[in-house]
Design a protein around this nucleic acid. Structure first.
Lengths: 301, 301
DNA sequence: GTAGTATTTCAAAAATATTGAAGGCCAATG
DNA sequence: CATTGGCCTTCAATATTTTTGAAATACTAC
């Protein structure tokens, strides 16, 4: 047969894996188990590989099956998005709009805007997610989200549109109980090396960590979002820079103190960014609304 | 119907566009025209959009049709790659291996290695392409190629493996007939502004050209590969930096001369790079062979 | 061992796709 | 402006593919 794979077969495969058995998947798909047997058998024949290990009762994926499933999922996703963009073409409203917020930005302003959008009762399904550092760009790149809030300026503008929303200001904080809270004067690089630091790690690139020489010998605790970092700092697990807007409340309540540090952290510009496809009416609305929103950052111009 | 699109339907759509008519596509697919009518009609119904404008004799794509075709193509590509990777899983040899060479690198060493590979008669189909600047990373990113030769170091290492192959050295060249060929001493920034420069542009990002202040007022001729740049330089259309290995031959034959320039161009490290999937035997072979090859660059340690 | 669950096999039934003939429509041509 | 030929659709008949349900087989857990 010329072309083996079929979206239908991929869907069946996915359902089997998701529900754990032919029988359960058949239920979920409103079919009879033997129909799934048939579909999978056909896929296996056409592909010339066996997808399931049937040596025991419960069929379990072979490596080939896993491969087909993994790659198949992205195909199914793409197919679903195709259908969505056709719908968008008709009404102008995209059926789904996926928004990611960088973890360094406050959640409230975004939720406010989302609230205003929801109140309009548009036929658009909003989903929100949180990303750390370059994760946001990756998500945009991979078409896992449509709009990013808080992307930082240092990456691939090539195929995205961006719009600045303000400048992030970082302040160095420690818990009041932390040894460094009691020292005099600005904290030196030498002092820093004595204490663990808390950093928000980019979830996509955990492995190749080329730490800058300065911090080489330092203990580093990696967390995957800013709220965890705030918690860790408050508990005195380590020290680190936080966006200004995260700090105020904690300083008020005495859970953190601000110190000056010899190694300053540059402010950086925050952007909203979206792909250069043609935007649906929902995306356009959000771009305007988000750009007009007060993000509690240093004002852009 | 729950799910409208079908790979089969997308293939038919693609064939119709490719061959220009239902009739021609039917021939190509060894079917009868009415079969295509049926398939397309079904797709249109399920999608709830009309894909063709049938007001005149020859059916022509509507905007929706164009959309479905465009997005559909990438889905078909992905499906084809899925089948390929299944084949790879069996033999270890990937059925296709797509290699891109950055235009700044010489072609000969690559061809030598490819020759050696072809001589082994493996079941791997090699295709070569040429990319400029960041184009290579994009191609890797988008899964349009599997291996890049000559990627420069300044981009997203996150999800790729890399291996240095040498350092590119740039020299400033002009045609002997060019006014700047006759001046004394190093060429100054002021002199540079007087003459057009030839640059190799990144094909993916042609639009947002934020030229560095220094060259602001300068005429710039953009070409899309290094050989064109060499030609343009030889013809005296402008001035510019070239990788050393391109220059030697032209200097010998008197078509170019090397000058010193006040604005030096940094050397940069060249890499081979590939995606972090698990590599087939072909890719692995190429990685080793290419790393061992003499690229006529400054040696990497 | 037995009950319960899971998968496959098989033949029959249902659904879907393909075919070829007929018909309409357009555009080019004389 | 009538004719010819190409192109697409419609429709009923036919062929193919998919689904079904019942029976058979096998594994697991009790």
């Amino acid at each position: 047969m010329a072309h083996a794979v079929t979206l239908e077969a991929l869907r069946v495969l996915e359902a089997i894996e998701q529900f754990g058995s032919f029988a359960a998947a058949a239920d979920a798909l409103y079919k009879v188990p033997s129909a799934l047997t048939y579909t999978m058998k056909k896929l296996e024949e056409d592909l010339g590989v066996s997808l399931f290990d049937r040596s025991r009762q419960r069929a379990v994926l072979t490596p080939a099956g896993r491969l087909v499933l993994d790659k198949g999922r992205t195909i199914l996703d793409a197919a679903a998005r195709l259908e969505d963009s056709v719908k968008q073409l008709e009404s102008g409203w995209e059926p789904k709009l996926r928004i990611a917020r960088d973890t360094a930005l406050p959640e409230l302003p975004l939720l406010t805007v989302v609230g205003a959008f929801l109140a309009q009762n548009r036929p658009v399904q909003i989903s929100l997610s949180e990303e750390a550092i370059a994760g946001a760009w990756d998500a945009l790149q991979d078409d896992r989200v449509d709009l990013v809030v808080g992307a930082s300026g240092d990456l691939p503008k090539g195929r995205f549109h961006t719009r600045p929303i303000g400048e992030l200001e970082f302040v160095f904080t420690v818990a009041p109980t932390h040894p460094l809270a009691l020292t005099e004067g600005p904290i030196t690089a030498a002092q820093l090396r004595e204490h663990p630091s808390i950093v928000v790690a980019d979830s996509t690139k955990i492995l190749p960590q080329r730490d800058s020489g300065l911090f080489e010998s330092r203990q580093v605790l990696r967390v995957d979002n800013m709220m965890s970092k705030v918690q860790a700092l408050c508990l005195g697990l380590g020290v680190g820079y936080l966006p200004r807007h995260f700090v105020d409340h904690e300083v008020m309540s005495g859970r953190l103190v601000i110190r000056e540090c010899e190694l300053p952290r540059q402010n950086h510009m925050s952007y909203i960014a979206w792909r250069k496809d043609d935007p649906g009416r929902g995306l356009s609305w959000f771009i305007e609304a988000l750009a007009a929103q007060d993000w509690q950052l240093l004002k852009v111009e």
